[in-house]
Nucleic acid binder design. Structure first.
Lengths: 237, 237
DNA sequence: GTGGCGATTTAGCCTAAACTAATTATCATC
DNA sequence: GATGATAATTAGTTTAGGCTAAATCGCCAC
């Protein structure tokens, strides 16, 4: 296990199964916690398109099951057990996405929704077989890291293209996967994981970025808005 | 459409989605109806491992949605709409089973349980992509016919090996898929769809059958009980 | 025809997970 | 330190789909 990994597997009890909603909550909380430190009721509600009051109710049930700690009016923190379930769900989701894209020819903007439903029905056995068939992939079609069978994940943090110094060459690592239309747009621009990008110019006051996409010789220039820019993670190269 | 097919597709409205339990009821009722003419409360309850009273409740809801007709104390009959949903679910189940076995190397005794969960989460799009990847299979790993995209199915009826005249050569067409242990046992005996079988002798009073399995030269003789025999469908050849 | 028994339905209850409306806590600002 | 604005929680309701216990139906045997 390299330093940039998080281990989440203390004991190995038979690991109960959880309902779809429970897995969705834990997955979402995990992602929010990773992005912003703690997950708040409203954030969770917003992500899951659910009323805040419903979130409070579910959070209480999850706390009863020791999957998270809840400090009323403050926020929520996954326990080890909760993280374990979240990572397992995330692994399922991302392995399934990768399988749909690579084996069944799904376009990358369609894999998310299908995986969102399948992840709650697929057994670990199935997901592991898919992973084997794919030669143990480490990232999904959007570049997000796939947790391993034993619950470790590459949690390295990348800068967004919005923060990249002018002229710095970088590789696109990861794009957010939740909006099909945005994904189609990104594909049109050649902005898929692995693409070479350079920021040519940045307009002041949260204006658009002018960027060059693609390997030398076949590069194209585009302007992208700041919101989109923040959703593109890069690694300088 | 050949004479031995049943069409079930009058109009083409957007076809709502149904919950897992609803699909399971309709699928089960379809199979019971096909096997015995009508489906009774207790039969349904037994197949789904649910209390009879719960079945009555669900049957009322399904009748409200015009998916079936219920004659109280008598039994239940699917409507066209109900059959359509049942056949779509059956198609999903069987395509998924076939995919798991052929693409992911699942043993044939394990595909049923996995498909049972996935069939409620998979979209028609996914199932159709699987079917395409498999070159439009017409039977699942147990030999059961796969309904086509447009809702037609080969509903030809086969005799069971229990009814085969002594000495009559036949091909095994279909085995029941619900008991993994039985499936493992059948595989050991070479009793998989397509196998050549002959009944050598039949003990009286519902006794065991003596059968020969396999192509000439590599055939083996076995004795099978009458209950098992009734679960093996054959086509004389 | 009447009894009885198994099959079926009714009645009433439970849980998970959602909702709305009303209440309460936190925090930034004055 | 008081005051709103915003966020969060409580209270009460809803729906789907289960359950048990009790009542009722259908039918076969006498």
């Amino acid at each position: 296990m390299t330093p940039s990994q998080t281990a989440v597997r203390p004991d190995d009890a038979p690991e109960p199964t959880y309902t779809g909603p429970v897995e969705d909550y834990l997955k979402t909380i995990y992602e929010l916690e990773r992005a912003t430190g703690t997950a708040t009721t409203t954030d969770i509600a917003h992500r899951l398109a659910i009323a805040p009051a419903s979130v409070t109710g579910m959070v209480r049930r999850l706390a009863d099951q020791r999957l998270l700690k809840h400090e009323p009016y403050r926020g929520v923190r996954l326990t080890q057990a909760g993280q374990r379930v979240a990572l397992r769900t995330l692994r399922r989701h991302r392995v399934i996405e990768t399988f749909l894209a690579r084996v069944l020819g799904y376009p990358w903007d369609a894999v998310h929704d299908e995986a969102e439903r399948l992840e709650h029905a697929a057994s670990d056995e199935l997901v592991d077989r898919m992973a084997t068939a794919l030669d143990e992939p480490t990232v999904d079609p959007h570049g997000a890291p796939i947790p391993s069978r034993d619950g470790t994940v590459n949690d390295r943090r990348y800068a967004s293209i919005a923060d990249l110094p002018l002229g710095q060459r970088a590789r696109l690592v990861c794009v957010s996967d939740d909006d099909p239309a945005r994904l189609r747009y990104l594909a049109e621009l050649g902005l898929t994981p692995g693409a070479l990008v350079v920021v040519l110019a940045r307009a002041p006051f949260e204006g658009p970025l002018s960027i060059r996409v693609g390997d030398p010789g076949r590069a194209a220039d585009h302007a992208i808005g700041p919101a989109l820019a923040r959703a593109l993670l890069v690694e300088p190269s």
